[in-house]
Design a binder for these strands. Structure first.
Lengths: 184, 184
DNA sequence: ACCATTTTGTAGTGATTGATACAGAACTGT
DNA sequence: ACAGTTCTGTATCAATCACTACAAAATGGT
């Protein structure tokens, strides 16, 4: 019913996501968005609501990606695999040339709630797959350490570090985790 | 000569620093600054130049503080002490109630050059205090790991983590470093 | 007392911000 | 063919951005 939309909403959302990813929420203006998406402001507002709503939908799209670092880790069935998978995925993704460097969620100051959610998911998963019951009270600490590392790796990638440099750091971090799990 | 300044330049710079620290460069407007500093725009511009120059001077003031995390670490005379000092200082400072949470340099996207500088200083110091010559080629990796941790801890503190939570993460990180140094 | 110099407060600059009013265009259902 | 609905493009809106023109006020030097 009515005049059909002249652009593809999904690809437009994807372009918006990449803009927010590269520049951040505040630094991305409506002018930037309408130019990049090739549409006029009224079309953008009709399709996505206001700027904040568009940002939230873009973040939701970002987090729904199965390539997501946290999501990939949660699929594993023991603590070591969960965390190694997260680090390796971060190393591969954060410096990728296919999209802006770093992690959208770990870069945006306004996404603290998302970070807390991911950290909680990780902690819950680490508790879930724990075999030795005595190390379960450190699941929160392990998750906190892992996500602190991810934030740091994201920043490092944004500052220009390549995959090789990220991996060198991740290797040290994973070392810490294995030692921690052994000593309980 | 001429009419004397009606405000103290040094305390004004300090207030500006705290505003930038809490909100970031782009998110801090001239209006915010003139209101917080209690002066009118012409006074601000006459005393500090434009916004960017004021920001740079504020950052210089921030980094000149001897309580600075990196500075404190560089004073130590062996690798373990250098890094432990940095972590402990970060844990104490990043969640302090005396000033905005986190680290100004590790939070601002526009301060990548400062981060690289601090990382290089740390790597150089770690190389300098190395006794075992064979572990010297990992000084860059150690420094990179440490500063990735610091960025992550800064973000964690900004997200609301308290000193206790930061210390739990830092303890794991320091564990990683000691293991790495032992295994060469 | 007067001049030169610097700061102050007021008021405003043009540019950009997020968001819209409005009219015409393009579709569907009857 | 026509009504109803939705989208598009132009042309804005008020608010805020970083920044400054201007004149009065406050000093030191002579």
């Amino acid at each position: 019913m009515g005049r059909p939309r002249a652009f593809d909403r999904d690809t437009a959302l994807d372009k918006a996501l990449h803009l927010f990813w590269a520049r951040g929420y505040e630094q991305t203006s409506i002018s930037d968005l309408t130019e990049e998406l090739g549409i006029a402001p009224p079309s953008l507002y009709a399709a996505f609501g206001d700027k904040r709503t568009l940002f939230e939908e873009a973040v939701a799209r970002y987090e729904a990606d199965p390539r997501s670092v946290t999501t990939a880790g949660l699929a594993k069935t023991n603590q070591s695999d969960v965390l190694r998978t997260m680090f390796e995925r971060a190393v591969q993704e954060y410096a990728s040339k296919d999209h802006p460097h770093g992690c959208l969620v770990n870069s945006a100051p306004e996404l603290a709630a998302n970070r807390a959610h991911n950290r909680n998911l990780t902690a819950a998963r680490l508790r879930e797959v724990t075999e030795d019951a005595e190390s379960s009270d450190t699941a929160e600490n392990l998750a906190a350490f892992a996500h602190v590392m991810l934030v740091g790796l994201s920043s490092y990638a944004r500052d220009g570090a390549d995959e090789h440099q990220l991996r060198a750091v991740a290797k040290l971090a994973f070392h810490a985790i294995e030692v921690s799990m052994e000593t309980g």
